[in-house]
């Protein structure tokens, strides 16, 4: 096992474990912290895949912005511990677990047959692709339209967030 593979497996295991832990935590703050851990590991995984720029952006956007926002709201609303999971271990929950596990097994099974198994080797161009220069170039040529149109997505989000969270109705 090479060093790179070692790092990959370590990060992958931490990612999955932290995802599971996030689910099991009763306190939303702890959940959020596990999610942040999860995000950091993901960032590491991106690095192993030669996507340096994405890795940085990911850490900044998710861990830096989104999760802080989450924590902020959790604190703002002053949420306590969730009711114990056992309290509502209803039929629906078993169904939910069964559904998710089923989906997981199905994906595993299918991955076994898929053409994606040919992807054992990273493409040689992958190294160059992750750089800021390359991404910048392609973002403003081939992906110009989606890039521009996301501005409206953000605009809608800003207007909406301001409007919904505003306290009083000004007539």
């Amino acid at each position: 096992m090479t060093f790179e593979q070692g790092v990959f497996y370590f990060l992958a295991i931490v990612t999955v474990v932290s995802a599971v832990m996030m689910l099991l935590q009763r306190n939303p703050v702890n959940s959020a912290l596990y999610l942040i851990l999860n995000f950091f590991c993901l960032g590491g995984l991106y690095l192993t895949l030669n996507a340096q720029f994405i890795a940085m952006v990911h850490i900044m956007v998710y861990a830096g912005a989104i999760m802080v926002l989450f924590l902020f709201v959790i604190m703002l609303l002053n949420l306590g511990d969730d009711k114990s999971l056992r309290q509502h271990l209803g039929l629906r929950m078993y169904l939910g677990i069964a559904f998710s596990v089923g989906l997981f097994l199905e994906l595993l099974y299918i991955l076994g047959f898929s053409s994606a198994n040919n992807y054992t080797q990273q493409s040689p161009t992958a190294v160059e692709m992750g750089t800021v220069e390359y991404i910048g170039k392609i973002l403003f040529t081939k992906f110009l339209f989606p890039f521009e149109i996301t501005s409206f997505l953000l605009l809608a989000a800003i207007i909406g967030a301001v409007m919904l969270a505003k306290k009083k109705i000004i007539q």
Binding site: F143, F145, P146, I149, T150, L153, A156, G160, A161, M163
Partner: peptide, 16 residues
């Protein structure tokens, strides 16, 4: 990609 963004722009406005 544009389908995904179109759906999201529409949906985010709808949520609000």
């Amino acid at each position: 990609i544009s389908i995904f963004l179109g759906i999201e722009i529409m949906s985010v406005s709808f949520y609000v």
